[in-house]
Design a protein around this nucleic acid. Structure first.
Length: 303
DNA sequence: CGCCAGGCCTTAC
DNA sequence: GTAAGGCATGGC
């Protein structure tokens, strides 16, 4: 696989004053929404101590992306202009205070938004979301990150900028050509055949990736479950963190626990009905509320 | 050792 | 249609 070498480093800054509610990169990129970022100093999940933060790095559509927080701005470096890309990927145009204030009055939700200021939702892509969350089943966030980083390093498009190497998220047509054993070697375990089958299904066009912006949410979620390894929960995550839909409330173990403890009236027995009940309960931006609850419960329980 | 992790698939009724 | 079992793997 050839490495694309880029010569010119392009830089820019986005003042935090331009972002309603600011941004906290650690909370946004290490909260189990996206697994395609690494941190230049090592462990993505370690709390960065001071500003400027270490660089967070990934590749998007042929563009290397390096970002960090300073006291007053979001700084970026790349091989080209990427501000509009960043605005999309990190949802920088979302009005965080308005969105979060519109959530429910319940104390657990209010505690969640008070403790994690600046956490934004991300928007990878439907494809990246599907592959990432097929890998997520019965797996801890930190280990999903290892799996996806392995896939990127072994099968992603390679780039070089200023002497540093970067890998993109592997394309479906590349994954489709691999052997199952090669995916197992990335640590995917029993999810390897699911990722392989989904990549092949997309690559050969058996099931086209739907346009996730122009269709009603629930039929869309049900359609995605046609992909191997994709049930309602994985489909919800792919739509929320990949496709930019804000309706889904993925029901994982943590959220099911939160429903039992804090919203017991929303437990309707099966996934679709419970999901709709909690969605109606969480206000106009259910996906945002869910993500704050998930991150809050997960980080306050296991430390 | 057993239990858990951003569940899904297959099989049995 | 719903209910069990199986599934890889590492951390605790």
């Amino acid at each position: 696989m050839r490495t694309q070498t880029h010569r010119e480093v392009v830089r820019g800054t986005i003042p935090k004053d331009d972002l309603d509610g600011g941004i906290d990169l650690h909370r946004t990129l290490a909260s189990g929404q996206t697994y395609r970022w690494r941190r230049a100093d090592g462990d993505l999940f370690e709390q960065p101590q001071r500003h400027p933060t270490p660089w967070y790095e990934t590749v998007e559509d042929g563009a290397i992306i390096r970002i960090r927080e300073t006291d007053g701005a979001l700084e970026w470096e790349s091989n080209r202009e990427i501000e509009s890309t960043l605005r999309c990927l990190l949802r920088l145009d979302d009005d965080l205070p308005t969105i979060l204030e519109a959530g429910p009055a319940d104390p657990i939700y209010r505690a969640a938004i008070a403790d994690h200021r600046g956490m934004r939702l991300v928007k990878d892509s439907l494809y990246v979301g599907l592959v990432s969350f097929i890998c997520s089943t019965q797996m801890r966030v930190e280990r999903i990150h290892v799996m996806i980083q392995n896939l990127m390093e072994r099968f992603g498009e390679r780039h070089e900028l200023a002497g540093r190497r970067y890998s993109g998220f592997p394309r479906a047509e590349v994954l489709a050509k691999q052997e199952e054993s090669a995916l197992r070697a990335c640590g995917l375990g029993y999810r390897a055949p699911y990722v392989l089958e989904t990549a092949r299904t997309i690559d050969d066009g058996r099931i086209p990736l739907p346009d996730a912006e122009g269709e009603p949410y629930e039929p869309l979620r049900d359609r995605l479950t046609a992909f191997s390894g994709v049930g309602p929960k994985v489909a919800d995550c792919a739509l929320l963190f990949g496709a930019g839909r804000l309706e889904p409330v993925p029901l994982d173990r943590w959220i099911q626990r939160a429903i039992a403890d804090h919203f017991p009236d929303c437990d309707r027995g099966d996934y679709a009905a419970t999901s709709q009940a909690i969605r109606d309960r969480l206000g106009p931006y259910p996906g945002y509320a869910q993500t704050y609850l998930f991150h809050h419960l997960r980080t306050s329980t296991d430390g």
